[in-house]
């Protein structure tokens, strides 16, 4: 079968300081000159194959490696071992609020978000900004204000809309749906369904199995960097619920 994303024996680890040494002062005081860093393995020999158009939820306890997995696919993290082959364009914006500058206006922030997600043409950007404003239900006057004057919900609307207006081939969402009011959440879910129906692949990280069932068909459970289940979303949600 032809795949869109394929991970082969991917192992990812980070350097982490031992004994919580985070300054030169502590480094000298604790005299831990040898081996201040230790390797912490996050993903162990991870294998995964995803075909185009699939919608997959990743479930698992905090710190099990879900976000690292998405970052590996997005090319933000480079694995120590194994290969990552992604054959569809990745929209690089993973989490909301990344790159939001509170001092700049709403318009400036939309523009930066668009550039960072790969929209380099001024003309298409201008047209997209209007659509984003409409989706976020924010008025011109509001968008001309600095982002620090926005409420938390408004800011979330702004950043999420920047993500939603695109028709990405690969949509990665990392625990961000719980933003905005109920109405806006419904609107986002509707838009995500639209994006999937148009042929996009969805990778969704969530702690809410209900939401995962609503949006995805396939579920993958991860514990301590290892895949323990891969299959139907309903079964995956059951396994996830039994973990706690």
């Amino acid at each position: 079968m032809d795949y869109a994303i394929k991970l082969d024996n991917v192992t990812v680890s980070y350097l982490q300081s031992r004994n919580g040494v985070t300054s030169v002062k502590e480094f000298l005081l604790k005299a831990s000159f040898i081996k201040i860093f230790k390797k912490h393995q996050v993903l162990h020999d991870f294998n995964l194959e995803i075909s185009k158009g699939e919608s997959i939820a990743f479930l698992g306890p905090n710190g099990c490696g879900k976000s690292t997995l998405l970052r590996t696919i997005a090319g933000i993290v480079v694995p120590d071992k194994g290969t990552v082959d992604v054959r569809i364009p990745v929209s690089p914006l993973l989490s909301l609020g990344a790159g939001v500058e509170l001092e700049l206006t709403g318009y400036d922030n939309i523009r930066i978000a668009l550039v960072l997600s790969g929209n380099y043409h001024r003309k298409t950007r201008r047209e997209m900004i209007d659509r984003i404003a409409e989706f976020a239900e924010l008025s011109r006057e509001q968008l001309k204000k600095p982002a620090k004057m926005f409420s938390t919900g408004m800011l979330a609307r702004l950043t999420f809309s920047s993500l939603m207006v695109n028709q990405p081939e690969l949509l990665m969402i990392d625990e961000v749906l719980a933003v905005g009011d109920w109405g806006f959440q419904m609107k986002c879910k509707k838009r995500i369904h639209e994006i999937i129906d148009n042929g996009a692949t969805l990778l969704f990280v969530s702690h809410n199995p209900k939401e995962a069932i609503e949006l995805c068909k396939r579920g993958i459970c991860i514990i301590e960097g290892k895949k323990i289940f891969d299959g139907n979303i309903d079964e995956a949600a059951d396994i996830y619920n039994k973990l706690f």
């Binding site: 970052r71 997005a74 090319g75 933000i76 690089p92 914006l93 993973l94 989490s95 990344a98 960072l116």
Partner: peptide, 8 residues
Amino acid sequence: SMIKSIGI
């Protein structure tokens, strides 16, 4: 925050 979420 950008380093954690954008692949540039």
